[in-house]
């Protein structure tokens, strides 16, 4: 694979779900200058580990605002943050409820389904 012989970026990625001890996994990904952190995460899901959770919708347009994560301690959009050749640490937002890996609860409270059960009208008449 030609891509594997070129430039590499090294990512330390938080893995884990609520109630379990989180851990970091290290992935090396091939990259071309200009690529973003989200590009790398999508590459890992296709080529290495499809169980990695990352939330995004619009991919590259900075329109959906769903891919907000912590990169080297700063809150950023993964789709807007360029990869570098040095090691980068990716974590979920520290001030939000963890859902899985890099995903946190970011929906406005009045647009959430209560996680514990049904909402609104009772299910039966």
């Amino acid at each position: 694979m030609a891509a594997e012989c070129g430039l590499k970026a090294r990512l330390r990625i938080h893995r884990g779900t609520p109630g379990t001890a989180g851990r970091f996994e290290v992935h090396e990904v091939p990259f071309e200058p200009g690529q973003t952190v989200l590009d790398a995460l999508r590459w890992i899901r296709i080529h290495r580990d499809p169980s990695l959770a990352i939330r995004f919708s619009c991919i590259n347009a900075n329109a959906c605002k769903e891919c907000m994560i912590n990169v080297d301690g700063r809150t950023v959009y993964a789709c807007m943050t360029r990869l570098t050749e040095s090691e980068t640490t990716l974590e979920p937002l520290p001030n939000k409820t963890l859902i899985r890996d890099l995903v946190t609860e970011i929906a406005p409270p009045d647009e959430r389904l209560r996680v514990t059960g049904s909402f609104g009208e009772p299910t039966e008449e």
Binding site: S57, A63, C64, K65, E66, P108, E111, G120
Partner: peptide
């Protein structure tokens, strides 16, 4: 009405990306 979306309301679809 119940308005349900697989992503976030008004943010996940094509409309928000229309330029």
């Amino acid at each position: 009405v119940v308005l349900a979306d697989r992503s976030l309301i008004g943010r996940g679809g094509a409309t928000v990306m229309a330029q």
